[in-house]
Design a protein around this nucleic acid. Structure first.
Lengths: 162, 162
DNA sequence: TATTGTTATACTCTATAACTATA
DNA sequence: TATAGTTATAGAGTATAACAATA
């Protein structure tokens, strides 16, 4: 089988193991992400950030504020405003004024939004299962565990800098 | 320690393990990638695709054609033209006409490009080592191995569709 | 006819910064 | 003064499609 050329090919023979791990991680992630993005676009006419935002709201029936969404999605505030505007125009989410703090509002999925998200989430889970399902369960568990350690370390570094 | 909110928080308690693994993978990758991007911008006034292109050329002293670069970097042709134009204008790469096929040309790093890339690559390797170095070697090996399996499967799926 | 690379264009995603309203 | 959210803008990154030159 001919190895498919990809980003990982930028690793030189004498490169450090860490670099190889990183390039492989990046390649995997890009492959899966672009697959998910194109399916979301083709099958549901939506985008990954829109899907992410709805997924966050799905988990928070009481609603979330813009700032919370911004932190969870790790993007700046202005972007959340833009996505929320779109979704609100399409009737998928609503902004509700908060009485005790009139600067902010709660964003919630509408019934239509919940229905729409449920459909996408089912499909999304199938795509992901197809891609990860080939790994033995022990490998998936190992991956989850190691990525957990990695994330802790990277996040700690970010805190140090800030 | 308070868990930092991130993309992974979109996983619901009853979500399938595959979904959790994917969200964690995505979060790790995004964290590291955005760190690398901002360092490349701040310290070397460049971008990830420019760095990637130079890294590919570094490995191919005889040069590469646009189409090869396009396949390796997994982006469409037009983008390669744009990046190459920039790098050529800055004297980091050169296009050389191929005598036997006058439609295409070989792209190579110039001596300046090699020097510039070497400097960036050293810094880049340090960043990556700092992030991955905290993992025990056995974990890194495991990660490398599992991601290898995952990639094979995802790539195979892509071939099936095409 | 098919392929290589270029050009033109459009859209998504993101950050930054200035701003308004409220706390 | 500080915070929540909005607006405006700029740039990265990408894909698509029409095109020219060559095979």
């Amino acid at each position: 089988m001919i190895p498919m050329p990809d980003l990982e090919s930028r690793a030189a023979p004498d490169d450090h193991q860490d670099l190889r791990v990183w390039l492989r991680l990046l390649t995997c992630c890009n492959l899966i992400e672009s697959d998910v993005r194109s399916r979301l676009r083709n099958e549901f006419d939506t985008t990954l950030p829109r899907f992410d935002l709805m997924a966050q709201l799905q988990r928070a029936p009481a609603g979330m504020r813009m700032g919370e969404l911004s932190r969870h999605m790790m993007v700046t505030n202005g972007n959340i405003t833009g996505i929320t505007d779109q979704l609100e125009k399409e009737g998928l989410v609503v902004r509700t004024k908060i009485e005790t703090d009139r600067r902010s509002s709660l964003i919630q999925l509408t019934p239509l939004g919940r229905k729409s998200f449920a459909k996408m989430a089912r499909a999304h889970e199938t795509w992901i299962k197809n891609m990860f399902g080939a790994l033995p369960e022990s490998s998936r568990d190992a991956l989850f565990k190691v990525l957990g350690e990695l994330k802790l370390h990277v996040v700690a570094d970010r805190h140090d800098k800030a």
